[in-house]
């Protein structure tokens, strides 16, 4: 169990991830699904960020007298991923707006009902 403190971040990440996934699957509201998707993605961002932490290291900014830095690469990667995530969210919300215009609802079940009729 001595590894336990070191693994806490992973536990947190996994819980977050599963929460996000659960929201996506279980919720019928299209907006809530996107919220869930965001939680899901953020958990992965955290995974990368925690990976980057080097014990005793500081922020990776070159400065006098500091030898140990955290790994900057995952931060950079996640910057990209965040941008992608924002784009996805924006597109998803835009689609929801158009779905609302076309169907008059954003509830999955009601949309299914309307689709079955046509």
């Amino acid at each position: 169990m001595e590894q336990f403190p070191g693994l806490i971040p992973y536990w947190v990440i996994m819980v977050l991830m599963m929460m996000g996934l659960y929201i996506v699957i279980a919720h019928g509201n299209l907006i809530k699904k996107i919220v869930g998707l965001n939680v899901f993605q953020v958990s992965v961002f955290l995974l990368y960020i925690t990976m980057a932490k080097v014990e005793g290291g500081t922020a990776p900014i070159l400065a006098e007298g500091i030898k140990l830095y955290s790994n900057p690469l995952p931060h950079v990667l996640i910057l990209t991923a965040i941008v992608v995530g924002v784009a996805t969210t924006a597109l998803g919300l835009a689609l929801v707006v158009r779905i609302h215009n076309a169907y008059g609802t954003i509830e999955d079940e009601e949309i299914d009902k309307l689709e079955d009729q046509t």
Partner: peptide, 19 residues
Amino acid sequence: RRALTAAYRYLIMGTIGAT
């Protein structure tokens, strides 16, 4: 209009896949 829901569902699935 079903294209919209198709795109939305693809978006959800695709994003989960990519993540």
